[in-house]
């Protein structure tokens, strides 16, 4: 498989602090690649470096065969971007937003008009064609932003937290559309801090923290590489006390408020032990990406 994005030793320094600190990436054609990390991990800065919107303080980037940032203009001709914050034109209708944006790619009005019906249908906005942006719901605005990113029929689409702030229905619709895009052979690069989003959408993931990639691979690989396969979450006022007496039943414990997370290779002895403690409630489930994420980046709040 050919790679569409290659980054080696990428660094960006702000005020003496490395926000992106030596990142190597190889993103293949047709895959959905996720950058995962807590706020401030350097995800957005990495995207901006890959797009050539920032000059790196070290390292090299190649996007669609073009050297970045030197040839960023040529590369961006075939790229679409869904930014983290909405920046639609509030004075315009849905259709006008697409028309005006297409012109920035050097497309003629006829070319853009010809693409409008498909773009509107893809984003479920056909009925809203002439609605002004301020009258749209949050989900509609996101879908319009996605349609706008597709106006030039790009090969690569960058999405910075594409579903942040959306309700579950709106989020599922975006996910469905993104899967359709990968099915059409588009390459997607997205940042997120929603683990279910990453697990559902991404073929491969890189977990970032403090400007570095701390683990990389498919969601399954990340789980297999980093964490025990099963988790038992134990709740109750006495859970923490109980955990001190039950160390032999789990490979690892993590305490979070009144919950104890028990990571185990085989849950049977632990479940048996829990039968003896009717005052404790528990959930037994397979380990997921969120467990990996919290293990790698810690449970403490980032503010």
């Amino acid at each position: 498989m050919s790679s569409v994005i290659r980054a080696a030793g990428l660094r960006k320094i702000y005020g003496g602090q490395a926000v992106v600190d030596g990142i190597d990436l190889e993103i293949r054609r047709g895959e959905c690649f996720g950058l995962l990390g807590p706020n401030g991990a350097g995800k957005t800065t990495t995207l901006r470096l890959l797009l050539g919107l920032l000059g790196p303080d070290g390292g090299r980037v190649e996007l669609l065969g073009q050297a970045i940032p030197q040839q960023a203009r040529e590369a961006r001709q075939r790229v679409g971007v869904v930014p983290q914050m909405d920046n639609l034109d509030p004075d315009f209708t849905v259709a006008e937003n697409l028309l005006v944006y297409g012109r920035y790619f050097g497309m003629s009005d006829d070319q853009i008009e010809a693409r409008l019906p498909d773009l509107l249908e893809f984003s479920n906005l056909t009925a809203k064609r002439d609605a002004k942006v301020p009258t749209l719901s949050g989900g509609m605005k996101r879908r319009l932003t996605l349609a706008r990113a597709l106006v030039n029929d790009p090969d690569v689409i960058f999405l910075d937290e594409p579903t942040t702030g959306l309700d579950p229905q709106a989020r599922h619709l975006i996910w469905q559309r993104l899967r359709e895009l990968t099915a059409r052979g588009k390459t997607l690069v997205l940042t997120t801090h929603f683990m279910d989003e990453a697990e559902r959408l991404c073929h491969r993931l890189a977990v970032m923290d403090n400007g570095r990639i701390i683990s990389q691979g498919s969601p399954r690989e990340l789980i297999a590489d980093n964490i025990e396969p099963e988790v038992v979450e134990v709740f109750g006022e006495t859970a923490a006390e109980w955990a001190k007496t039950a160390t032999q039943f789990a490979d690892r414990f993590e305490l979070s408020g009144e919950s104890v997370f028990c990571y185990v290779r085989d849950a049977h002895p632990l479940l048996h032990e829990l039968q003896r403690h009717p005052e404790l409630r528990y959930v037994h489930r397979p380990a997921n990406l969120e467990d990996v994420f919290l293990k790698l980046t810690g449970r403490e709040m980032r503010e």
Partner: peptide, 14 residues
């Protein structure tokens, strides 16, 4: 405020 420039700079326009 409207971040119009940001939207434009994601295209080939500089």
């Amino acid at each position: 405020e409207q971040r119009t420039w940001e939207a434009i700079m994601n295209t080939p326009v500089t």
